[in-house]
Amino acid sequence: MGAHLMGSGAVSPISTSKGAGTGVPHQFSYPDKEVQSMAVLQYANADAGAEGVTQLVLEAAASAIKERGAFTLVLSGGSLLKALAPLAATRGADWACWHVFFVDERNVLHSSPDSNFKGADEALLSKVPIPREQIHAIQEGLPVREAATEYAGQLLRLPQDVLPRNAEGLPVFDVILLGIGPDAHVASLFPNWPQTAATEGWVLPVEGSPKPPPERITFTMPVINSAREVAIVAFGGGKAEAVQRCLEVQALPGALPAQLVRPSAGSLKWVLDVASSQALRAQTWQDAKAFPRSS
């Protein structure tokens, strides 16, 4: 194209732009691989869904213990903990082989009502004979950055017969149970936050969380996606909008963090009840013109 004149009569300078996409890259991108195994499981109500979660966990535990003599379970907090009641009532599990971790945690004392450890202890851990040294909790009283580093250190020190590593050197947990927030955040990975976009590291600090308390630690998305099995558990009508948006709307990457949960070599299950899945239109999922939805 020819040059043009500016208002002063001078010839406009030649652009030095190298075109779109050649400057600072966007922190998020669409995953380049589809989930190898994904299922949406719908139950009549939250109680039936909790039984489904229990069956999922117990089957994974039996398989892992038979294979290598250990089972790793990762919990989140919030409403997910209510789904652990049937698991807490289970008898006959090989609890001595279980190791329990937290996909995220608030940087508070274990006695705080905000502590995911406290919630999990009340819902499950105090009711089953898992050895206390095999319940891996955040260290109390540290600045949040040090707490994240210390928790990553706990994971790194575990032998590979307990916590295997994949070809990329990432830990491979047997089961990660995730809740989902109304903004579709999982763990403490919030929409469009740099921690959600992180491609390196195992555990990161979160400061200034949009949900109180402000200081947290969280697994990274690559660690979550290295698990053998990930279950996103959502019960009740209050989860319906987040569930529908994640499963049916193609959002900009990073806008709905739960959409970035895509196990690279494992399976993903959405565990729902009728109330949380009420906005889905599963009958359109095979129609290329109707799916994905725009709203």
Rank of each mutant, 00 (worst) to 15 (best):
H99A: 04
V53F: 10
S76A: 14
I135P: 13
A88V: 06
R68P: 05
A60P: 00
L84G: 04
Q134M: 11
T149W: 01
H110A: 13
V35S: 04
V100A: 09
W98M: 09
I65Y: 01
P143A: 11
T54V: 03
L75P: 08
I130E: 02
A48G: 03
P131I: 07
S115F: 03
W95L: 07
Q134G: 04
E146I: 02
L58S: 05
A64W: 06
P143Q: 05
N116M: 12
E122V: 13
A39C: 03
Y30N: 06
L125N: 07
A48D: 13
H110R: 13
V144R: 06
C97A: 15
A85T: 12
Y30P: 05
N45F: 04
L81M: 12
D47I: 05
L84D: 05
S79R: 14
W98A: 09
T90V: 08
G119H: 12
E51P: 00
S111E: 10
E59K: 03
S63W: 01
V74T: 15
L80D: 03
Y43D: 05
A44F: 10
I135V: 15
W95T: 11
E105C: 11
S63A: 14
A148K: 02
L109D: 15
A88S: 15
T149G: 04
G141Y: 02
P86C: 11
I130N: 03
G52V: 08
E67W: 02
E146D: 14
R68K: 14
D32R: 05
G52L: 08
A85C: 07
S126H: 07
E122Q: 14
A93M: 08
I138C: 10
F117Q: 12
P143V: 10
G141K: 08
A48K: 05
A148S: 03
L73P: 00
A83S: 14
A83I: 00
H136Y: 11
Y43V: 00
E67I: 00
T54I: 01
P86R: 01
A46P: 03
E59W: 00
A147P: 08
Q42A: 04
K82S: 13
A83E: 09
G52Q: 06
Q134W: 03
D47C: 07
S63C: 10
S112K: 05
K127W: 09
V53I: 15
C97R: 15
E59I: 02
V100F: 02
N116T: 14
L124W: 08
L109A: 13
D94E: 15
S37R: 11
C97F: 05
A148W: 09
V40W: 03
K33R: 12
G49I: 02
A44K: 14
Q55D: 11
A96D: 13
A46M: 14
G119L: 12
K118L: 15
L109M: 12
